[in-house]
Amino acid sequence: MKKKNARPDNVTAYTMLIPIVVLLTIFVIIPFVYALIVSFYDWSFYQESRFVGWQNYVNVLNDPLFGKAVVTGLKFALLVVPAQMILAFLFAHVIRSMGKKLSGFVKTAIYIPTIISGIIASIIFVFIFDYNAGLANVILNLFGVENQAWLADVKTALASIALPAIWLGFGITSLIMLAGLLDIPDSYYEAADLEGAGSWSKMIYITIPLLKNVVLFLLITGFTGAIQQFELPLVMTGGGPLNETTTPNLYIFNHFRNDVLVGHSIASALLLFIVLGSISAIIFKVLNSEKAVDG
């Protein structure tokens, strides 16, 4: 690669970088370093702080509710991500086979939920899961099943929150999957047709291997997104019943709101950060290793 420019543009570069660097320093780096420090202190809004070493972390790890929150987060991700991926995979195929006009309409239709806020989704789905007259129970009644207290029953609460999460994320997942599908050259399929391959073997030997990167990307972003979800349970259930829908971030958020011992909540947030931060780093690595994007 040739040198872009012989004279270094130090002054212009620094001037143009000032806003982003200053803002990120004040609102991301300082709070982060501050959080690291506080996590080693017995610190609250009302008293002198005291250095306690790893005590906050030990407390968090020994808190059965933290463990439960992590398990809840994992269960939630398992409810949301596979369902979303399978639906998106099927649906991307459907859109691809459609005519241009129809596929345009369908793409728009499935994308719209993506731009709806978690609050509005919660409001709608709380009504849908209403015990007496919600649509979910109306449908159950059609099959002769009795009304369920969807959001109040420990057996169904988490799944009931997973449904709006799938609804919100399914459109974008399908469209990314579709973009991946359209990137596969037609000639591969034509060659397969000449060989007499059926649609099933085309899927196994062409589509799935060539979609690998897209699927990986969607799995990782879907997983980190799902495990960090907390607006839906915050509004729909407040984390209940019996903490059954307390996702990790909701656990942390509830501690922020109700606890005077800030160190504990921050330590739990940082523990979670270690896991999520490494996952995001992997995504970035995968993405950045690809050659520049196509325009």
């Binding site: 990120l24 609102f27 991301v28 780096i29 300082i30 709070p31 982060f32 501050y34 959080a35 506080v38 960090q228 907390f230 971030n249 942390i252 958020f253 922020f256 800030v262 909540s265 921050i266 947030a269 940082l270 979670l272 950060f273 999520l276 931060g277 995001s280 780093a281 970035f284």
Partner: peptide, 13 residues
């Protein structure tokens, strides 16, 4: 800064 989740810095922010 991309790898720092919002929740980790919510309170200190």
């Amino acid at each position: 800064t991309m790898f720092i989740p919002g929740m980790a810095i919510l309170l200190t922010s």
